[in-house]
Design a binder for these strands. Structure first.
Lengths: 224, 224
DNA sequence: ACTTGACCCTCACGTGGCGTGAGGCAGGAC
DNA sequence: GTCCTGCCTCACGCCACGTGAGGGTCAAGT
């Protein structure tokens, strides 16, 4: 048995620390190297020693890392005062909820794909694309920056090819197409010439668009 | 104006394709290099030409990429027959729902942090850790493989330090601690000696654990 | 016919967040 | 002593691209 430590000093070697946090030793090495979390002590033989303070810092790093933040930003967050921290927390929350929404759409889309596959329907790639209609969302703003001719042409193509394949999905596709067409019109009215300024504009439009597409999505669900 | 193309052949250059998909040209270059999606044609001058078939393949790649799949696995998925595809789809759905759950916990945790910060409570790192209690989940199985002494010690430390800081969060912390302690007992009964075989066992235990921790979490929510 | 500018090509090196050894001390159990 | 495990420091590898460099191509304008 180990000598029962009277003091809760919590001085851990790197291996135990890693095990506690559920990360690898290499990861802690890395975080030490880049200065994200350096152990506040070293043993005489050069062993890294993580104290309780280090542990709480490590915990916060884990939290932020869970949000897919780059390590240098995590570093800034940990260093920053609580004012900035509040802002960034809000920002992170928004990012997380966005991600959740996207993932939920992915989930329902996957569900549909699975059902379809199970019931023996061999769905064409085009049908798959139409199921993931919401995913198009991301594509449109980029499209807007390009010439318009091609995209319209492509939409037509998509409609046609999906029509001549699975019929079950046909209605859905068509309705979304219609909505998309409506959006295209609404979009083309305030189209500014390409350039760096159009970028920010496209961003706003994208936000606006996503609302519409949420409707689209829920309609799909109802129909299905 | 462009010459209105009568045929919907949809032969696009790499730039337009990239814009359509919302990815960079370099990404398409990369996917070509590694053989994930190669354009089925080239112009006389060597330009990549993406046809409609290429486009649908690209769309499927985008879908899978959204699930954070490595590219080589995506490649296998696209090549695989529909039987294997069904399996992998199910697998992906499970992965996605897991991720959603974790993110939702992150979200509620963030919400609490924000509230706390707003109401002027300066929360110590320890309190933060306790809020993200569910995150510990990931850590426990690793802990189980390690010596037990330290972790218990650490738990005591965490309890003590959180007690002497913010009081509002204190109750929550305590209750979770108790539950955790109960789990520790339940756990220590069937503890097998360390080794590679223990790995798989730890995995199972982890699954089992997560159920308990789901309860933990919902209890936290109720209390809050 | 010539220029301009946007697009395309192929190298080829850089980046982030580690993984994965290689080679060598440290420290506790037998 | 010796054996095993854990720790150390290089140092290179990996993935999914980003970011130029250096140079051809294409459609439009003058």
């Amino acid at each position: 048995m180990e000598p029962p430590p009277n003091e809760p000093l919590a001085e851990l070697t790197i291996g135990k620390t890693a095990a506690l946090l559920g990360v690898t030793v290499r990861t802690l090495h890395h975080w030490d190297e880049i200065g994200l979390v350096r152990p506040s002590e070293r043993s005489l033989s050069g062993y890294r020693i993580y104290t309780s303070g280090d542990l709480s810092r490590l915990h916060r790093v884990l939290i932020y890392r869970e949000l897919d933040l780059p390590l240098d930003e995590i570093s800034r967050l940990l260093e920053a005062g609580s004012d900035d921290a509040l802002d960034s927390l809000r920002h992170q929350r928004d990012r997380v909820t966005e991600r959740i929404q996207r993932l939920e759409q992915m989930s329902s889309a996957l569900e549909k794909l699975i059902e379809a596959q199970q019931s023996g329907i061999l769905l064409t790639p085009e049908a798959q694309v139409s199921i993931f209609g919401r995913h198009w969302n991301q594509e449109w703003p980029h499209q807007a920056r390009q010439r318009w001719g091609d995209s319209v042409q492509w939409t037509q193509y998509a409609e046609r090819s999906s029509r001549r394949s699975a019929e079950e999905w046909h209605d859905i596709t068509l309705k979304t197409e219609q909505l998309e067409a409506a959006l295209v019109e609404a979009f083309s009215s305030d189209l500014s010439p390409g350039g760096p300024t159009a970028n920010a504009l496209a961003e706003e439009h994208r936000d606006l668009l996503s609302e519409h597409f949420d409707c689209t999505h829920s309609m799909q669900v109802c129909i299905a």
